[in-house]
């Protein structure tokens, strides 16, 4: 046989070179972390978001009802150790109320995004996996939802179902905001459907459910995670706007939006009352946006790790 100087590969000894030249071991998630850590703003945003979430959970828990307890004696009292931002015109601890408001806003933001992701992934993956007329029908629904001015639809839904209910707001934002997620997932599915590794799984005899759950959804999730993170910012802003207009969370319940509304009344006497919820809102939006940007870069497997 010609070429006998060459060692037979199958079954035989494994060429030593095989090992030497392997690149260093890094799993997918290690790579993701590495890329994310390189995005400095995203790391800052991550910690900022962590602090905001922790504060929004812990402080209302520790301070009990301080966020709604009025007191004639404490009206417009200056800052102290237990009330770092002083008291407002009703004698409510401003910091405690701010944190309670943040809690409400973040809760609405995260919960609405969950609704958005659930509807979006379901509709998008169904359209993308089956294609054909199913895809056509679902995408026309998306077009219809997109063609309605979202904010007015939310206003209408909230007005119809009852102002001031947290769940109504979440559902209203969720029902109008899923279209982007659906389109992203559909686009991913359409290309994944043709991907060789999906075809390979089918050729092995894997059923539809395994193909979708094990191969397609994990690969399609990256853009959804990014969109969801950015969606938190949008949802928080929508909530604030609703509450500001009086359709959202109404006092005595606290939200960043209704704190802004109330601060209007005292704008000239105590402008700081507007600044606190305003700045908090900006911080939430910035943190979510930069986090989303960082995730976008980190989750893209095509991105290589490079410096400079």
């Amino acid at each position: 046989m010609e070429g006998t100087q060459v060692t037979r590969i199958p079954g035989g000894a494994i060429p030593a070179v095989d090992e030497v030249d392997l690149t260093p071991v890094r799993t997918y998630w290690q790579l993701v972390r590495q890329r994310f850590v390189r995005h400095r703003l995203a790391v800052i945003a991550f910690f900022l978001m962590a602090i905001l979430v922790t504060a929004a959970i812990a402080i209302p828990l520790l301070s009990g009802d301080a966020w709604k307890e009025t007191s004639l004696e404490r009206i417009n009292q200056p800052a102290s150790l237990t009330a770092p931002l002083g008291y407002d015109s009703l004698g409510i601890n401003t910091f405690a109320r701010l944190m309670k408001g943040l809690q409400t806003s973040l809760f609405i933001g995260f919960a609405a995004v969950l609704v958005i992701v659930f509807i979006g992934v379901t509709v998008g993956s169904t359209a993308g996996y089956f294609g054909g007329w199913v895809d056509n029908a679902l995408m026309r629904v998306v077009d219809i939802v997109l063609s309605i001015p979202t904010f007015f639809l939310i206003l209408m839904l909230v007005a119809f179902w009852g102002t001031g209910n947290v769940w109504v707001i979440i559902i209203a934002i969720g029902l109008t905001g899923w279209t982007t997620a659906a389109r992203l997932v559909r686009a991913e599915f359409l290309s994944l459907r043709e991907a060789d590794f999906v075809q390979a799984a089918k050729a092995l005899g894997a059923g539809d459910r395994r193909v979708v759950m094990r191969h397609m959804i994990p690969s399609a999730m990256a853009p959804v995670v990014v969109a969801a993170t950015l969606g938190i910012a949008d949802s928080v802003v929508v909530e604030a706007a609703l509450s500001f207009l009086g359709f959202g969370i109404t006092p005595p319940e606290a939200s960043l939006g209704n704190m802004l509304t109330k601060a209007q009344d005292y704008f000239y006497r105590n402008p700081l009352l507007a600044w606190y919820p305003g700045i908090t809102l900006v911080l939430v939006v910035l943190a979510a946006s930069f986090l989303g940007d960082g995730l976008r870069d980190a989750l893209d497997p095509r991105q290589r790790v490079e410096t400079n």
């Binding site: 046989m1 060692t7 590969i9 070179v17 095989d18 030249d21 392997l22």
Partner: peptide, 29 residues
Amino acid sequence: KRHRLEVIQGVVPNPLNLPKGCLFKRRCP
């Protein structure tokens, strides 16, 4: 039409981890 093809063993070295001396030595008969 030969029955077996000659092969160059192994793979191109990792550019971040080049061998010392001749770069082809690990694959060289």
